[in-house]
């Protein structure tokens, strides 16, 4: 599903976030991407989401070399992904419903279809009763669940989560992980980047450890 071949990413100023990374994530797999902050986890996710382009190497998603995705095609590529962020990236002044509806509005779906899909997604994360609440008034855990509902509302084949539990206490973190597990069980490929090693114990899954922009094979084997 996701394949990186000798990928390097160097930022202007000489900072090399990834150097010569190769990895393979199968369709339907659940993978933890670990490493201390600055190890290159976020950069890797940004490359897969086409938020950035690699300096060298190839990123291949679902058989398509992302190098060949022209800028006008990027929006359509991104609609196949579900992105989840540490800071939720919610529109605080808007209702929960409006926030989850954003990816569907972008696709131009009709109002009825949007209503059905948003409620289905909110139901999955257990927030159906809060659909009219302002996103900014929710607790941090609830906000992250809204973020997850927004990521899955478009039925993506792939979920990319960057530190999704960064602001949550352990029990809420486990809840969030359980949600990811559920989506993974229906066939969604899930990649969770985290520096929180306690999460890894909560859920048996493959771990790809990054260290200073390289895949740390020792740590990977240990896990």
């Amino acid at each position: 599903m996701i394949r990186l071949l000798n990928v390097s990413k160097r930022y202007p100023g000489g900072n090399e976030a990834l150097s010569n990374v190769s990895l393979d994530i199968a369709e339907g797999e659940f993978v933890f991407l670990t490493g201390h902050s600055g190890a290159g986890k976020s950069t890797l996710l940004r490359l897969v989401a086409l938020l950035e382009r690699p300096s060298r190497g190839e990123v291949i998603v679902d058989g398509h070399n992302l190098e060949r995705v022209a800028p006008p095609q990027i929006p359509y590529y991104r609609r196949q992904l579900g992105l989840i962020f540490q800071d939720h990236r919610l529109l605080a002044q808007r209702s929960v419903f409006d926030n989850v509806a954003v990816p569907l509005l972008v696709c131009g779906l009709a109002d009825g279809e949007i209503g059905r899909r948003v409620r289905a997604a909110l139901d999955k994360v257990g927030l159906l009763h809060r659909e009219q609440a302002r996103a900014g008034t929710l607790s941090s855990g609830e906000q992250q669940r809204v973020g997850i509902a927004r990521a899955v509302v478009n039925r993506p084949r792939m979920l990319l989560a960057d530190e999704p539990t960064g602001n949550l206490d352990p029990s809420l973190s486990r809840e969030v992980l359980a949600l990811f597990r559920q989506f993974n069980q229906v066939g969604v490929t899930v990649v969770v980047a985290t520096h929180d090693t306690t999460l890894l114990e909560a859920l048996p899954a493959r771990v790809i450890a990054l260290s200073h922009g390289r895949v740390d094979s020792a740590a990977q084997n240990a896990a």
Binding site: A49, P75, R78, R79, L91, V102, V106
Partner: peptide
């Protein structure tokens, strides 16, 4: 700006 950033993240075209 925040809103537009988000729209672009979830696959909005420039036209949208």
């Amino acid at each position: 700006g925040t809103e537009i950033d988000l729209y672009k993240l979830v696959g909005a075209t420039d036209a949208f």
